[in-house]
C-alpha cells in the first residue's frame, strides 16, 4: 500500500520535463563551486597527519588566536542575545512613531559590506573618532583590543536573533498571556514563565547563528583589531598569514578546524530549528 501511495505521489511530478537538465546544472554547479574546493581542503588536511595537525593546533600562537576568536564571539553573542531579544520584543509588541524605520535599520548590518563596517567602526573608536574621543580620556581603549574585535563581531551579526525571534513572537497566541494577567501575574513573571519558554527554541537558533557568524567574521574584524600576534589576531587571519608564508599545512589545519566548528554549529542550529517547528506545531 505504501508503494502504491509513493508511486502515486511520484508519478504526477515526473510529468514535467527538464529533470535531467536542471539536475545536471545543479549538480555541476554545486560540485564545481562548492564541493571541489572543500574536498581540496579536506584532502590537504588528511595529508598533514594527526601528529603534525595536533602540533599546529596546540602551538601557542594558534591557541591564542582560537581563544581570542572564541571569547570575542561569545561576548558578541551575549550582547546580541540581549539586544536582539529587546529589539524583537519592542518591534512586535509596541506601536510607536518610526517603528518601520527601526525595523528596516535591523537589516543594515547584513546589507553593509563587512569591510565598510570595519572601516567605520575602527575610525569611530580611534582617538580622533566620535566614540574614541569620548572613551579614550576615560581610559577605555576599544581599537586594537578584544573589545574592538567583539564589537565588530557583534555589529555584523545583529540581525540573527532579532529576525529569528520576531516571527515566533508575532505568531504567539496572546490568550496565555491574558490568562496569566487575569491570574494576577506580574508582567515580568509572564514574560519569564509564558513568553520566554515559547520563543526559547527560536531564540537559541538565533544565538547559535549569531555565534557561528561571529566566529567566521573577517572583514569587519581585521580593520579594528590591529592584528597583533598572540593578542588581537583572530584564527581565520592566522590561517591567511600561514598561507602568505607558504605554510599550506598550517593554513589548512586551522581552516579545517574552523570548518568543523562551523559544521557542528550548523547541525546544532538545524536540530534546534526542527525543535522550534515542533513546538510551533504543538501550540497551533
Amino acid at each position: 500500500m505504501t508503494t502504491v501511495a509513493a508511486a502515486a505521489r511520484i508519478r504526477p511530478k515526473r510529468v514535467l520535463p527538464g529533470f535531467g537538465l536542471t539536475m545536471g546544472v545543479t549538480l555541476s554547479y554545486v560540485g564545481i563551486i562548492v564541493l571541489l574546493p572543500l574536498a581540496a581542503l579536506v584532502l590537504k588536511g588528511a595529508e598533514i597527519g594527526p601528529e603534525r595537525f595536533f602540533a599546529i593546533m596546540t602551538a601557542p600562537r594558534t591557541l591564542a588566536a582560537l581563544k581570542l576568536t572564541l571569547s570575542a564571539a561569545a561576548m558578541a553573542t551575549a550582547f546580541n542575545a540581549v539586544y536582539g531579544l529587546l529589539m524583537a520584543w519592542v518591534l512586535v509588541r509596541y506601536d510607536f512613531p518610526g517603528k518601520r524605520i527601526l525595523d528596516a535599520l535591523m537589516d543594515i548590518p547584513f546589507a553593509l559590506p563587512t569591510a565598510v563596517a570595519g572601516l567605520a567602526l575602527s575610525a569611530l573608536f580611534a582617538g580622533n573618532g566620535w566614540y574614541g574621543a569620548l572613551l579614550e580620556p576615560m581610559g577605555i581603549q576599544v581599537i586594537f583590543t578584544i573589545w574592538g574585535v567583539a564589537f565588530a563581531m557583534a555589529f555584523t551579526s545583529i540581525p540573527f536573533v532579532v529576525r529569528t525571534v520576531q516571527p515566533v513572537l508575532e505568531d504567539l497566541d496572546p490568550q496565555y498571556e491574558d490568562a496569566a494577567v487575569t491570574l494576577g501575574a506580574h508582567p515580568f513573571t509572564i514574560f519569564r514563565r509564558v513568553v520566554f519558554p515559547a520563543i526559547l527554541p527560536a531564540f537559541m537558533v538565533g544565538v547559535t547563528l549569531s555565534f557561528a557568524r561571529s566566529l567566521g567574521e573577517f572583514g569587519a574584524v581585521v580593520f579594528i583589531a590591529g592584528n597583533l600576534p598572540m593578542k588581537t589576531e583572530i584564527a581565520s587571519l592566522l590561517a591567511v598569514i600561514r598561507l602568505e608564508e607558504y605554510d599550506y599545512n598550517g593554513a589548512a589545519a586551522i581552516a579545517l578546524t574552523l570548518l568543523m566548528i562551523a559544521l557542528v554549529l550548523l547541525v546544532a542550529s538545524n536540530l534546534l530549528q526542527a525543535r522550534a517547528l515542533r513546538y510551533k506545531g504543538r501550540g497551533a
Partner: peptide
C-alpha cells in the same frame, strides 16, 4: 543541505579552499 553550506562557512575558509585547489601546489 549542500546548497545551503556556503551560508555557514566563513568566506575566508572558502578563499583558503580555492587557494588549496588552484594554487601552485594545489590539486
Amino acid at each position: 543541505t549542500l546548497i545551503e553550506i556556503p551560508f555557514s562557512i566563513s568566506p575566508i575558509i572558502a578563499g583558503i579552499c580555492y587557494l588549496l585547489l588552484y594554487g601552485r601546489t594545489g590539486l
